[in-house]
Design a protein around this nucleic acid. Sequence first.
DNA 1: ATGACGATTTACT
DNA 2: GTAAATCGTCATA
Length: 208
Amino acid sequence: MTAAERWSRADLAIAPELLAPALLGQTLVRTLPDGTRLSGTIVETEAYLGARDLAAHSAGGRRTARNEVMYGPPGLAYVYFTYGMHHCFNVVCGAPEEPVAVLIRAMAPLEGIDRMRAHRIARAGRSIVDREIASGPARLCQALSIDRALNGIDLVTSEELFIERAGDGATADGPVQSGPRIGVAYAGEWARVELRWWLAASPHVSKR
DNA sequence: ATGACGATTTACT
DNA sequence: GTAAATCGTCATA
């Protein structure tokens, strides 16, 4: 058995609407400060297309302190805080200076399940079954202990957070479905474009 | 300086 | 089904 191959800069330097479905079935890995390894299989993603995309933080070419990382090279982690209490994690992709990214919305827990569950219980204050551990963008960040301290880190070189290649193709995890993105009703026409993808058979997606 | 709002989650009717 | 929680960010003044 050989060491798992990590996603490279070149792998991530592609359009978000191509990367989002390609990341389904891949393994997201988080190494905690104490060395604990947490991971899961990505089962739901969304693409954000940059300046033309009214649902993106970079809509209209907006460039602020918050979304600055989106303008960086592909492979950076864009982590932002929202609704006064939640974090969301994106993989910056495309070309440098092109503010496009893929939001990781859900994963199927793989390694460190009990630790991830403990993270969720600490925030939610209730019992958490497996399908509730990382079935949503903010839930996933809670489970993996991702917050703004990780904003801007390099997924290609960092040991704290990265993506491992898993399987050998899209069909290995069963059929993929697509639909409109979640929570972007403010984006007019762009709210209806099908830029969300998920593994149809997974119980770990954000909607049942 | 101020006000409106959010790439969500949770609980409650 | 509706609404609360909760505060950083952004546009406007």
